[in-house]
Amino acid sequence: MEKNVVEARDLVKTYQLGEIQVDALRGLSLKVKRGEVMAIMGPSGSGKSTLMNILGCLDRPTSGQYLLDNEDVSKLSDDQLADIRNRRIGFVFQNYNLLQRTSALENVELPLRYRRDNGNNHKEMAAAMLERVGLKDRMNHKPFELSGGQQQRVAIARALITNPAIILADEPTGNLDSKAGIEIMQLLLDLNKEDDVTLIIVTHDPGVAKRTNRIIHIIDGKVEK
């Protein structure tokens, strides 16, 4: 029990689109062990984006329970969810989502800025993290001066800086060429080994999915048995 970093029970998410009611998740249950690398696959419209949003604490389930690190986060307020995202969750997006005007270093530092502590070694922490992802020489470059692979490394460094319980990667290699994609996947796997951080990757790419410990398929808002 304690080894499960993610435990979702009977998640239901219903959207109201005008008159139509859309059932995105229909009683989905899921357990993820600490240190696991898991791939989530499924056709578009299957509900995997909704699942990612709920797992990432960007959204709340309509019903059901979501335990993150044994804490029930399905009923928290917006501000509490913001703090959970800040401390427990790292996001890696398909299109990197870096702030264009700011340097790699400041992008990595960003989550620390929203911490309600007055740690003043944020710059050093961000620099160390960029060094880990192999961007020691590129710290003061702005995103547009970096290649796609380098930008995704910055994003990974940003996800890791808060020492989160899980990293949610949404198509992390989707915008990269195959060589950069393989490198990024390797980086994520290396970090998983070194830090024992749990990786949840949403992907369409069977090549990516193949390198994980476990693959689940979502169909019609449920995990396919």
């Binding site: 917006d78 501000d79 913001a82 703090d83 996001f91 989550p111 929203y114 911490r115 808060t162």
Partner: peptide, 16 residues
Amino acid sequence: TREIGLRKAVGARKSD
């Protein structure tokens, strides 16, 4: 809007 979304994703509260 995207920047705001990103900031919120990494832990910015409404008040931030």
